[in-house]
């Protein structure tokens, strides 16, 4: 379980807040989507969960323990992270990229190898043809699959995904979204997923948290939000969406 209690974050000593008085809970096995436009504080929130950024005020708990009481390196090794810009290491092969966290954790070469093959299988990139390649030899979609495999490598209970499909073309994005849905049902991870794409949020999220200028506008299931928008901002967001699409 991930729990945020009255979390604030300011980067300029208090003149403005990237995150303001944010409280929310992500239940075990649940996928929570943080939805909002750029600058709303969603990525900052995500990074505070694994201490890439530290909160100015408030408490963040992962698995019942305040993250500030964790050793940040150990904490990060327990949380899978899929980066916005993919973030694969260009000088390492796909194999080396996938097994990096198990390597940091000191797994044996053999169990690392087995895990790597298993994971590449799961994300649809058979090891025999992909393990020895380098990231720049793969398409964007394939690279992001590797990014997901890397995040899952040490079998973490938590997965943070920062707009993982943002840079992909529409077709690839849709395919990967479907795969993620399957994966999610299969693996039962606790996932926090950041996006600015309404459609993606509705598709993937068990619950959705809508952020605007650092404030939490509403948090709830797809139905809650569509049926009873809590604020004018949320209502406008979905009105515009409805007019434009078939939802």
């Amino acid at each position: 379980m991930i729990k945020l209690t009255r979390v604030f974050k300011t980067f300029d000593g208090g003149s403005s807040y990237a995150v303001k008085d944010l409280s929310l809970t992500v239940d075990v096995g649940e996928t929570l989507v943080l939805l909002g436009s750029s600058g709303c504080g969603k990525t900052t929130t995500l990074k505070m969960i694994n201490r890439l950024i530290e909160p100015t005020q408030g408490i963040i708990e992962v698995g019942g323990k305040n993250v500030m009481d964790h050793n940040p390196v150990d904490l990060r090794r327990q949380i899978g992270y899929v980066f916005q810009g993919i973030g694969l290491f260009p000088h390492m092969t796909i194999e080396q990229n996938v097994e990096i966290v198990p390597r940091l954790l000191g797994w044996s070469i053999r169990s690392r190898r087995e895990r790597m093959q298993e994971l590449l299988e799961i994300v649809g990139l058979p090891a025999e043809s992909f393990a020895q390649r380098f990231p720049d030899e793969l398409s964007g979609g394939q690279q992001q699959r590797v990014g997901v495999a890397r995040a899952l490598a040490a079998n973490p209970a938590y997965l943070l995904m920062d707009e993982p499909f943002g840079a992909l073309d529409a077709l690839t994005r849709e395919a990967l979204q479907q795969e993620l849905l399957t994966l999610k049902n299969q693996l039962k991870k606790t996932i926090v997923f950041v996006t600015h794409d309404l459609h993606e949020a509705l598709l993937i999220g068990d619950r959705i948290a809508i952020l605007h200028e650092g404030n939490l506008e509403q948090i709830g299931t797809k139905e809650d939000i569509l049926d009873t928008p809590a604020t004018q901002f949320v209502q406008d967001l979905f009105t515009i969406k409805r007019q434009g699409t078939l939802i």
Binding site: V73, D74, G85, L88, L104
Partner: peptide, 16 residues
């Protein structure tokens, strides 16, 4: 900096 953030984010020590 993107790659370095990934290195930090997956849990590498500074020397790593």
């Amino acid at each position: 900096s993107e790659i370095m953030e990934a290195a930090q984010g997956i849990g590498m020590q500074e020397y790593q």
